[in-house]
Design a protein around this nucleic acid. Structure first.
Length: 308
DNA sequence: GGATGTGTTGAT
DNA sequence: TCAACACATCCG
């Protein structure tokens, strides 16, 4: 008699949405299967046949997200749509991003993935129940070096404004110690030969081109450096002092040895004026990096792609 | 004929 | 914006 409004008994914000359908259990709420009860989840409505529908509203109209045998799955579909339609601060049934958590990649990647697809595309995936697959597939794409890895599949590590000596004749880039030790493999690793001569690291750039640099520690200057191969990068990209190089890695990493590193650069606004050309089409590299870390799911930035 | 999605309304 | 309910439409 106490409760007069058993609408939303607070969900357990901790379940995951990995396995859709395939689990239409009735174990939930073992009471009277007669009258279809209202869903415990936001955006989920019962269907006459006992299944569950997901929907979200936008601009006075309803956007149908499909039907699901599992109330959970329907709730997750709503969550994904809410994030895409209303941004990372959207009210959802589950605290965290459904498909990404527990699968090994960061939620940032999923937000970027969402930002990289139109609302219509996301809705379509949800209705076809292919969202999870698309997400995983996308994260894996590019590792085979066929095409550049999408910005949203990368995880920012650090960046550095290059100094005159970094782009000079010394043929080396000093990697800030704190970042080197935190993000790059130890130079004493077995792979390095163990003799402190450093090791070779591969970096993929914004165009999907792979660069190989020697990475080592110089006792003389007590600093970590990228040497062999670096000058070529500087030359081809037309790097100038003041420009910024950005390092990132694949957001989807199963083990350390499988880690893919990326390198991009952003031309300094000053150097921009100098317009050295040679990098006209490569400005995209910088643009991508900016987009990755400035991703704003709900902002006007995405409104444009909402149409279709 | 069952499943799916829309029309529509009333509540918040 | 949201969900309940009715019902039109789709599809095997």
């Amino acid at each position: 008699m106490a409760s007069s409004k058993p609408t939303n008994p607070e969900v357990d914000n901790d379940m995951e949405c990995s396995s859709p359908e395939s689990g239409a259990e009735d174990a939930v709420e073992s009471s009277s299967p007669v009258a279809a009860p209202s869903s415990r989840f936001k955006g989920v409505v019962p269907q006459p046949n006992g299944r569950w529908g997901a929907q979200i509203y936008e601009k006075h109209s309803r956007v149908w997200l499909g039907t699901f045998g599992d109330e959970e799955a329907a709730a997750c579909a709503y969550d994904v749509a809410a994030l895409r339609f209303r941004g990372r601060d959207a009210v959802t049934n589950h605290q965290r991003l459904p498909a990404a958590e527990g699968a090994g990649w960061s939620s940032t990647s999923e937000l970027a993935f969402l930002a990289d697809h139109s609302k219509a595309e996301i809705v379509d995936m949800l209705r076809k129940h292919t969202y999870d697959d698309e997400l995983r597939q996308g994260l894996r794409r590019g590792h085979g070096r066929a095409q550049p890895t999408p910005a949203w599949a990368r995880e920012f590590l650090f960046e550095k404004a290059v100094t005159p000596s970094d782009v000079g004749k010394l043929n080396r880039l000093v990697v800030p110690k704190q970042h080197a030790e935190k993000h790059f493999p130890p130079t004493t690793a077995a792979a390095a030969g163990g003799d402190g001569k450093g090791l070779l690291l591969n970096f993929e750039d914004g165009q999907g081109k792979v660069w190989r640099f020697r990475y080592s520690y110089w006792n003389s200057s007590q600093s970590y450096v990228l040497t062999k191969g670096w000058s070529r990068f500087v030359q081809e990209k037309g790097l100038c002092a003041g420009d910024t190089v950005t390092f990132s890695r694949s957001a989807y990493v199963m083990n350390d040895t499988d880690e893919q590193l990326f390198i991009d650069y952003k031309q300094s606004s000053k150097n921009d004026e100098a317009a050295d050309v040679a990098t006209a089409d490569e400005n995209e590299a910088g643009h991508v990096a900016v987009k990755l870390f400035g991703v704003d799911i709900g902002g006007a930035g995405m409104a444009g792609s909402s149409g279709g």
